[in-house]
């Protein structure tokens, strides 16, 4: 058992997902999302699905919406590249989509392999017609994710919230 830890912005996101009656949660894990994923896994109101690749999450979201359920796709910025063709579904089918993206290769990143897709992430999403909301501080998380869910499920939009590296903290694997 983990020792109980102080509430943080991941708990704010979980509360927003509950408030918006999200029923299906898709993820290819990212360390930044792990606490949120565990909260979703423990919830009786949500079904949490691990994916083999992030594009499955877009297809699942389409299926869930056809069946009347709301969903969320949790991924890291590198996963955005895996979704591109299927992001087109949100336009052709005029689907709502909510995705929460933990950014890598963004701000003080130590791993050079993360930069190309991290830097490409906003451009790629924009090119596919996905609305971008961006969060740099813990205080803004709750209101931003709430607004994104409203745009998605009330406004019928595909919306991505970029949880910037400034918010998540710089992973350094022991490097100074």
């Amino acid at each position: 058992m983990n020792a109980p830890t102080a509430p943080d912005w991941r708990d704010d996101i979980f509360a927003v997902l509950q408030a918006h009656e999200i029923k299906q949660v898709y993820h290819v894990p990212d360390a930044g999302h792990s606490r949120l994923i565990e909260s979703c896994q423990r919830s009786n109101a949500m079904r949490t699905l691990a994916l083999t690749t992030e594009e499955e999450g877009v297809a699942l979201a389409a299926g869930a919406w056809l069946g009347g359920q709301r969903s969320v796709l949790l991924m890291q910025s590198s996963g955005v590249g895996n979704t591109i063709n299927l992001m087109g579904l949100t336009k052709t089918m005029r689907l709502p989509l909510l995705t929460l993206i933990t950014m890598r290769g963004d701000y003080g990143e130590f791993n050079s392999w993360q930069y190309p897709m991290g830097q490409g992430t906003p451009k790629v999403l924009e090119a596919m017609g996905v609305l971008l909301y961006s969060v740099d501080t813990a205080e803004e998380v709750k209101a931003t994710v709430d607004a994104a869910a409203r745009s998605a499920f009330n406004g019928g939009q595909a919306v991505a919230v970029l949880l910037r590296q400034k918010l998540i903290g710089i992973k350094n694997f022991g490097k100074k």
Partner: peptide
């Protein structure tokens, strides 16, 4: 279109 997405779409629907 959406090549490769068919089964995943069916899964999301089946759960819903």
């Amino acid at each position: 279109g959406a090549m490769g997405a068919t089964v995943a779409m069916g899964l999301g629907l089946a759960i819903a």
